Simulated assay, not measured.
Amino acid sequence: MTSVASDDASPGRFPDFLILGAPKCGTTTLYEVLNGHPSLHFPRKEPGFLSQDVENTERYREHVPDLAAYRQLFTATPAGALAGEATPRTLYSAEAISILAAHRPDAKLIAVLRDPVDLVFSYHAQKLREGQETEADFERAWRRCVDGETGRALSDAPWWKGRINYPYWGRFGAPLTRWRAAAGGRLLLMHLDELNSSLVAAYRRILDHLGVADDGREVFAMANERVDIRHPTLNRLAVTLQNQLHPVLAPIRQARGGQSLGLLRRFQRLNTKPLSSRPAVSRDFRQFMMQAFEDDLLLAEEIYGHPVRRLGAEGDALEP
């Protein structure tokens, strides 16, 4: 449970707006695009503090330990600018709703959705790159999380028997219900298709939601280079080693003015290759996967007011 024992009169501030997620729905793109606006400021991407009930970040180098440290993140926000936060796990967090209700009940919220099958397919590729997944075959990674006959998820937690529970990340309907009940009109819902079809229009829609003037920019690019990992197991070992060596490397990083040696990034560049064509998710397997999502997806589409699933996509190949 996140420690929230702190007086709001303590130094620092809470963010004025948050990008809640979902994962693989353009969070990084929105972070980079919005952070370029002169009246918006993000201290960094994915502090993760508000969503400790979804993923405990204590093992990460940039862990935010308590509410005071979280508030301190936003002290460098320029006068007159809005402070922003972008952690895609926040969408699934019940704890975040309670913390914001207590400390920033008027915060504006943004959530971006996409077809859940597409989402988890892309999420699997990301976790391979990050070293949290070693099973390169997506279908095998999925099947270990669900009942072989019904297709239903075996757990409603983000992890299942020490491994990523992929159905959890595609079931965002119930979390959306909680956020809509808590935030009402302060929650802006979008679809990834909006960003892909016209990032400029999506940008202006968000600025309008935040009550910020358009700065006139019209040239943006979608973030996140799409690559394959050559050796997933080696990648995971490298990430684990980096975390274990953090106490030794931290003084060196501090002596370099906060700049890391970049050893992990260099190894990961060597261990990646241009994105190859991943095996398509067949029509039958997509339908099998949808059994884990259908009830929850109906909730999401009711709240969003439009289809979230890719219509007519049953036999399409998916790209991460």
Rank of each mutant, 00 (worst) to 15 (best):
G131Y: 01
P279C: 11
H103V: 07
P320G: 11
A238G: 07
H231W: 15
A136M: 10
H231Q: 13
V112M: 11
W160S: 14
L20I: 04
I252W: 09
L261H: 07
V219A: 15
V33Y: 02
L195T: 07
A83L: 07
D208V: 13
R71F: 09
N235Y: 05
K24P: 05
L73T: 00
Q72Y: 08
P23W: 07
R265F: 11
P47L: 05
P105L: 05
E319Y: 11
R144N: 04
W179Q: 11
G184V: 05
I19D: 04
L241C: 13
V64C: 06
D296H: 02
D106S: 15
A22H: 03
A202T: 04
M190Q: 12
G26W: 01
P23R: 07
R256S: 11
W142R: 07
R269W: 03
M1I: 13
W169T: 06
S276P: 11
G151Y: 01
E62M: 13
S39L: 14
L20T: 06
V146L: 06
T150S: 15
Q132H: 15
E302G: 15
R163H: 12
L210S: 01
L189K: 01
Q126S: 13
S277K: 11
R186Q: 15
G84H: 00
V146F: 10
R256W: 02
A86K: 00
Q291T: 12
K45P: 03
L297I: 08
L128N: 04
L154G: 07
T27Y: 03
I97W: 09
T233V: 15
L264N: 04
Q244T: 14
R163V: 09
N271P: 07
R253I: 12
